[in-house]
Amino acid sequence: MHLTDLEMLTLKNAVKSNSESEHLHNCSACQKRYENRLLFTQKLAKTYDSLEFEPKWEALESELNMNGDNDMDKPKPRLAEKWEHFLIAFAASLCIVVISPSLINTLESSHVKTKIKLSIEENKNLQERLSLVTPKSPYQLLNHQTLKLKLQDLDQQIQLSYLEDVSETEKLQLWESRKQLLLRFIEKMGGHQKTRTEVV
């Protein structure tokens, strides 16, 4: 009985068992298949080898400068301190919502404005739930940090949307994106409580 394709595929990335090694040693057909399998991998590994890539160091450097070197110098912060930056950004977004004259002067339907208010409320609730989440593994911590960066980015976009007076629909989309980002992360970390607008 020859090695199956699944066994062939697994052989390369895992330690061969005694029976698999023995079979490969004694079966010329499977040896040939194993050589073919390695050739297939080599061909795949060459894809995008001659790809042209344009480094964008300046864009990265300016973003690092914007965020400041203080992020690098801080020791690993406690949970509350970890969320300090984007909580401030979130608060700034809320302030702009409250004081922005565009809210008063907008000609769009009150339905969209009501949806925005609801979405902001849900964001606040999700924010509170998030502050109770503690990453338990390095993988979860990495996701935690990724979320923080994405929220900072979204908060900046939200602030800009009010400052530049974009349409209410666009503002709602940004708030909803923020909400979905928080929801997905909380669900992944094991917080399964639904918000008011979610359909069961």
């Binding site: 020859h2 199956t4 394709d5 699944l6 062939m8 298949r33 194993y34 073919n36 399998r37 050739l39 297939f40 061909k43 795949l44 060459k46 894809t47 995008y48």
Partner: peptide
């Protein structure tokens, strides 16, 4: 169903692919 196949590495079918990307 997948475990039982034996035919993916019998021949170098990928050699005819010029643009694998």
């Amino acid at each position: 169903e997948l475990i039982s196949t034996h035919h993916y590495f019998e021949h170098q079918w990928w050699e005819s692919i010029r643009d694998l990307e």
